[in-house]
Design a protein around this nucleic acid. Structure first.
Length: 547
RNA sequence: GCGCCUGUAGCUCAGUCGGAUAGAGCAACUGCCUUCUAAGCAGUGGGUCAGGGGUUCGAAUCCCUUCAGGCGCGCCA
């Protein structure tokens, strides 16, 4: 629909004698009675042509008014050109959806380009909380969206299984283990105090009894660390699976060390002249690329920092030659951006090579009161608890009805109270209703195959044309969502389409005694179902057959 | 102190890189189930787009500033 409009506009603009045709923008006007599509192109050209916008608009409108695909061409407001499409054109376009389904709806923007999306990447030192859920829902939807757009997407989870935090976890479990076996043992100052730490210690006792009692931590450190983080990692995987999120690749930080990636990265940067020694430490010259200061990569004590392995990790990403690399981070890490971009540039790439998408914080409330979310103190509500309380689909939907950069207040009470009234059900209900209509039709002797013979020209009701037009704008919404990396646009679209369908359903009966019109209406329903399914699939939300 | 994000209806949020009379859902109120699912539909009310300047044909959107909230500014991860 959009393509045809633009093509017509382009020839019209050429007739104006404009040498350089500006990119022509097309949008759905804010009010339905303005028409089906609208363009502000005349206003853009007014400046170049030095003529009043309305005058330019009138001229263009005159050029295109006779096109058979239009029913009406108007000039409105300050100089918009609004068009209403002819019924026949709409029907022929709609047929393409009926015939080729999603293929017609999704433009192949990616063309097989390879993109990596890294998201969640929570430290395996404790269970996933709600913030990870938001990152997960967003990253998953974005990856789905890009896949649908013809990109070849790899989803990666980076596991921080090395370093101080993971050691602290092992130590915390060790302390609990000793205590549970009746040994007085001091708990590490900044240790992890969550209940899950004690649970892991109990698991160890169940498995190994008192084998490690009264040993020094250093003697059994590796064992305790490995046992603990692997246990947590596996429950993280379970949480993600139940939340409906999967990954293609799990990149271990440890492996970066073991395979020598970290060493190679440092040597690479050193060869390029961005590494120096100062005050017994080794530094990366981040300030050469706009960061506030240089950063330590090898500490005085000889240990690497977290940043060091991250340098190696991002170097590895770049070497894999993706066309696009996307990291999804919690907004609390935003201060880290200049540093990592400095790395990208030091390696000889433009900083745009890596796109970092920040997902804002989630504050969890219960009845209007903030719930403390301190991991160290062990006081927090996990993603799993929320999932179990309000449901995975609802939780995801709440995340996906917001822009990633807006702060989110997630009130458990409200989410629960609203779970019966949640908009996600509104959309799912529309889908289930259509399925139900089809099973009713089958009882009346109308099989799915019969749809192929449906004469969609019989659809002339205002609501039917309205739905058809809405379906035909899906590719525009889809394209916009892909280009801006904003899956939430799909969420809003899918709600609007569901609204139109529910209205239509209440106004018109689909299955009647007249076979011809019944088939046509069923074909329309099938179109709605195709698009709803497509949208929900991108969002990672189930499309139930019945509710 | 510096930096990033946010401020739109009572509440939760959209607003398509400057466009038309600023939109949804929830909550409130009034109606609609002998016919394909009432998790639905029809209708009513609700706004100083945080405040103030500026840029121009035109601003919720861009610039400056004030206020409010969140988050960062480690040889932690």
């Amino acid at each position: 629909m959009k393509k045809d409009f633009i093509a017509v506009l382009e020839t019209a603009v050429q007739r104006l004698g404009v040498t350089e045709i500006p990119p022509i923008e097309v949008e759905v006007p804010p009010q339905e009675n303005f028409g089906d599509l609208s363009t502000p192109v005349a206003m853009a050209l007014a400046r170049v042509l030095r003529k009043p916008p309305r005058h330019v608009a009138e001229t263009i409108a005159g050029f295109i008014a006779d096109e058979p695909i239009f029913d009406r061409v108007d000039v409105a407001g300050p100089g918009f050109i609004n068009v209403a499409f002819a019924g026949e054109y709409l029907v022929s376009e709609f047929k393409k959806i009926a015939e080729s389904g999603s293929a017609f709806l999704r433009s192949n923007i990616g063309q097989g380009r390879r993109v990596q999306v890294e998201f969640v990447s929570a430290n395996p030192t404790g269970p996933l909380h709600l913030g990870h859920g938001r990152g997960g829902a967003t990253g998953n939807a974005l990856a789905n969206l890009l896949t649908a757009a013809g990109y070849h997407v790899e989803r990666e989870y980076y596991i921080n299984d090395a370093g101080r935090q993971i050691r602290l976890l092992g130590q915390s479990v060790f302390a609990r283990y000793q205590r549970l076996l009746g040994i007085e043992y001091g708990f590490p100052d900044e240790g992890y105090r969550g209940q899950y730490v004690e649970d892991i210690a109990r698991d160890m006792i169940a498995e190994f009894d008192g084998t490690y009692v009264q040993k020094a931590f250093d003697e059994v450190a590796d064992f305790f660390i490995d046992y603990s983080y692997k246990k947590i990692l596996s429950s993280i995987r379970d949480d993600l699976r139940d939340f409906g999120i999967s990954f293609d690749s799990w990149q271990s930080e440890r492996e970066m060390f073991d395979c020598g990636e970290v060493g190679r990265a440092i040597e690479d940067l050193r060869a390029k002249g961005f590494i120096y020694e100062k005050e017994d430490a080794t530094w990366f010259r981040a300030s050469a690329f706009g960061d506030d200061k240089d950063r330590v990569i090898i500490k005085k004590d000889g240990e690497y920092t977290y940043f060091t392995s991250d340098i190696a990790y991002h170097r590895k990403k770049i070497e894999k030659n993706y066309d696009e690399i996307i990291d999804i981070w919690g907004a609390d890490h935003h201060g880290y951006i200049p540093r990592i971009q400095a790395v990208i540039q030091a390696l000889g790439y433009p900083k745009e090579k890596l796109k970092i998408l920040l997902v804002q914080m989630v504050t969890l409330l219960r009845g209007g009161k903030p719930v403390q979310m301190s991991k160290r103190a062990g006081e927090f509500v996990t993603l799993r608890e929320v999932m179990e309380e309000v449901g995975a689909d609802t939780t995801k939907f709440i995340f996906l009805t917001r822009r990633p950069d807006s702060h989110l207040e997630f009130d458990l009470e409200v989410a629960k109270a609203q779970s019966a009234e949640n908009p996600v059900f509104y959309v799912q209900y529309a889908h289930a209703r259509i399925t139900s209509i089809f099973s009713h039709a089958r009882e009346k002797g109308i099989e799915r195959d019969a749809l192929a013979h449906a004469d969609v020209r019989l659809l002339s009701h205002h609501d039917e044309l309205r739905i058809m037009k809405k379906l035909l704008t899906y590719p525009m919404v889809f394209e916009g969502a892909v280009k801006t990396h904003e899956p939430h646009r799909i969420t809003f679209y899918v709600q609007e389409l569901s609204g139109m369908f529910h209205q239509y359903y209440n106004k018109c009966r689909i299955v009647t005694e007249e076979r011809g019109p019944t088939l046509a209406r069923l074909a329309l329903c099938e179109g709605v179902r195709t698009v709803l399914r497509d949208g929900l699939e991108i969002l990672g939300i189930t499309a139930p057959e019945r509710m």
